[in-house]
Write a protein that binds this DNA or RNA. Structure first.
Lengths: 321, 321
DNA sequence: ACGAGCATTGACAACGCTAACATTATTAAA
DNA sequence: TTTAATAATGTTAGCGTTGTCAATGCTCGT
């Protein structure tokens, strides 16, 4: 397709290796030779073939970002992580290859895996033996970065308590994943350590979307009008809760406090601005990339988990009182 | 690093090509041979080296998605297009390589370029001569997919007129890009063809974000209280407008109609739900990918522009009256 | 004048794979 | 039985690049 060293060699009369040197070690060549060759390179629009280079160097400068099937690629979460790691990797001369298939492009210098579904576990371990790999999530056998979800929900709950809310309910995600359980644990721990009893009727699990949040909140607030604060396991759900409150003419934040979880930008769009637990996903992306590049450099196959702390991001759906 | 054909050849006693055939043309091998080799492949965890394959086949099955510097990778727009084209390319056995650098990985089978900044134009034309390439945007020399922004804003304006709004103002994006101008043209054309005069004081250009929208709307509605509909060049701006209206106790949609532009999901989060012009960006991503793969297949270097129509997506910020 | 050292260029092999052709053994057809 | 087709495997070369070593010519100090 394109111009090659061989062709250029025939055109200029110099050997292939000399042309190669004009690019990689120009100081080795005689000034005249160098100039002639560089001129020819320009004239014939020669572009080195990175595939051939990769074969020689045994590295591609490509990092594979694997997004499991059960995560939508449109997912805000995934996208922002990808943006973060993409920026770091880009600055360091790497490109990112995104694909849903494990083995389609195994010839990459490393992998970043976005969360783990069960059927992938075996392959993950398999692959981790051969290639530098960092997982967003938690697994004992590989290097990981994870968010401390227990801490996150603890922060949310303590914020609610500090604000002075008395009947703090919890809206969880009905999905069999570790992070959903962790968030619930954070809520329970914080409640317990502040001497608050948990009313079972104040804990509801539902699907993670606005509509489910709306419906769950409507039912919950109708049945338990004593509730004066609702902590949600996601911002999407929290938005639904706010819509329900508006519909039921419940004043947020005075009559009802609302706290979300994620902090990916949605919290700024709604009115009033949503108090939420911000997960620094962009930064986590960078962290994933940093760890990966370090492991590549040291030819190391790590298995440490690095926990990342979410932070409370106060909005206007909670007030001190 | 990994197991190679050569190593496997020594282990099994068969020649390299025979091992290769066990994978690519298993029917050519004797049953016993095939089974022995496949067993060895499994045992020694052989994975073919795609870099070497790419060198032979002269194709990588990788598509480069180039996102210009001036577009944030976190940008909803970019992300959803990428998600769309990624899904289509993925289904067709391609992976996508995302990078901000033009020449970092030229060894890809094709390029998708997300919008064009001026300093890139020369490189774009240069590259388009050598590689299949599709541009999201508009340029006479290369194959393009673009949104019909004039049509989009025409739809918005006509919707406002049909609803019965009388003083329809326009909030534009102060940026020297073609699409901003096109949207303004769409507004003007529609107004003109319906015999509506445009009051210059009813047209304001500002930055494309919620806060700017808020401030612009506040000033505009204060100065020109006769305005009863405000068409915005983006949903972010429209959200700001809605916040301003709320602050000023202006009833949306009865006293003031609000129309946004983009329809990327934001419109569903706000309350009331925002009437907007939806740009089918996910579908556009798929279209970009389709055209690219077709051009790759036909070894064709096209230069046709395919226009994509945005659609009106009615919400609750406009009413018929 | 003579080898040591340097500047400049080239030949060859290798990276891992596959296409094209070549070889051998086996079987069917004449 | 001889010939031709077929099955099963191997040999060689090449994809485009670079590392290693070799070769040539030159300068310089003695």
């Amino acid at each position: 397709m394109g111009m090659t060293l061989k062709a250029l060699s025939q055109i200029t009369g110099y050997s292939m290796i000399t042309i190669s040197r004009a690019i990689n070690y120009p100081h080795l060549l005689h000034k005249d030779t160098r100039e002639k060759i560089l001129a020819a390179i320009k004239q014939y629009e020669y572009i080195p073939n990175n595939v051939a280079k990769a074969l020689v160097y045994q590295r591609t400068n490509i990092i594979h970002v694997y997004v499991p099937e059960d995560l939508s690629p449109t997912n805000q979460f995934v996208m922002q992580v990808t943006a973060g790691l993409g920026s770091y990797l880009g600055e360091n001369g790497y490109s990112i290859l995104i694909s849903k298939n494990w083995y389609q492009h195994q010839n990459v210098d490393g992998l970043i895996v976005m969360g783990l579904s069960l059927q992938d576990e075996e392959r993950l371990h398999q692959l981790a033996k051969h290639k530098p790999l960092v997982l967003f999530g938690h697994d004992d056998a590989v290097a990981c970065v994870d968010v401390d979800n227990v801490l996150g929900m603890k922060l949310a709950t303590e914020h609610a308590i500090e604000c002075g809310y008395r009947q703090i309910a919890f809206l969880g995600i009905a999905q069999d994943k570790k992070f959903t359980k962790d968030r619930y644990d954070g809520y329970r721990n914080a409640m317990a350590s502040h001497g608050r009893a948990i009313n079972d009727r104040h804990v509801v699990f539902t699907e993670n979307n606005t509509d489910s949040g709306y419906r769950a909140a409507k039912a919950l607030l109708k049945e338990c009008p004593e509730i004066d604060c609702l902590i949600c396991s996601s911002d999407d759900m929290a938005v639904g809760v706010m819509q329900a409150a508006q519909k039921m003419n419940i004043d947020v934040p005075n009559r009802l406090g609302v706290i979300g979880y994620d902090g990916l930008g949605t919290e700024l769009l709604v009115h009033p601005q949503l108090t939420t637990i911000h997960q620094p996903v962009y930064e986590i992306g960078i962290e994933l990339a940093k760890i990966l590049l370090k492991n590549i450099k040291d030819a190391e196959i790590g298995s440490k988990t690095n926990f990342y702390a979410p932070v409370l991001q106060p909005g206007a759906t909670t007030v001190k009182r």
